[in-house]
Amino acid sequence: MADVLAVHQAGMVAVTDLGRQGHSRDGIPPNGAADQFSAAVANILVGNRENSPLIEVTASAFAFTTTRAALISVTGAPATLTCGGRPHRMWEPVCVPAGARVAVHNVHNGLRTYVAVHGEFQVPFVLGSCAPDSLLEVGTWLRAGAELAVDTDYVPVDHPVFRHPVFRLAAPTPRFGSPWTIDVTDGPAGADFVDLDRTLLSEPYRITPTSNHIGLRLSGPAPTRLDTRELLSRGVPVGAVEVTPSRELLVLLRGRPVTAGYPVVAVATRVAQSALGQAAPGHVLRFRRQALPDAVAAYRARRRAMDALTARVRTAFGCVGIPCH
């Protein structure tokens, strides 16, 4: 069944998903939700596939109504969430009556808040993803007055005593706010720098205003490179911490060019990359060295927590007859 989400207020708001994976060889970066963990959990909490399209609200306000009753969830950076004027919890499913105004504002201690709606937003896909890409000039940006179709089989739950069920699914929630602790593993050019322990791994680094979805530019003491040879361009992963010839530190995010010719001194872990997607200009990063097996173990623990949440959602939704996908 089709539902329509009518946008009443939207600052910097886009429809996205987990990104355009598998096209790096063709020079196309993944993009997609900057905070992959929060985005995936928002979808899990409404019974969607983790990679379903959802709404990313960047440091601004968003308000909408739906023509039919809807099941939504809001995750990511802490924000004020109201439905029909009443406050609601983030990181839990919320039953929204038809026509009730849902508002997300006061995003703080982070940059991006995610809104998932049970069902599938009907938006254009390019190379398997709806994620905006500023270079390919694709993506669905929402403005006040816009309407977004949702294909959903959600049937509103009506209880004789409680109009709407209240869920307490205990989604795992990360810590938000500056200073952010960013776990990193060693980078391939780490050995070319003499003073990583005294700079990158002990000093605070502030995010400058020229940062964006491609990378964070940092101000702070630059490590010193012994080797001065120019490097051949090679593939570089998301999370790479580069030192430019002008001794500026750059952390690559999901919109990064797939190749780079700057030395990479460290790589942010998969878990830390979600935090990087939340860190705002003016915020402080503190890098912490992590051994490779520990980084892998942390990511696997997070994956298990997400799978356990999915199981709880399925059980709870199964009890009240909400379909899961």
């Binding site: 790096s24 060889r25 090679r234 593939g235 570089v236 490779l292």
Partner: peptide
């Protein structure tokens, strides 16, 4: 790598002298 379909491998970037292979570390190992 693309033809073999190695489980867990998500993406590759081939350049002049190097191949970056990205994978899901929850599904496979280094």
């Amino acid at each position: 790598v693309e033809a073999d379909g190695i489980p867990g491998v998500l993406d590759v970037v081939a350049t002049y002298d190097a191949l970056l292979v990205e994978f899901d570390c929850a599904r496979t190992t280094h």
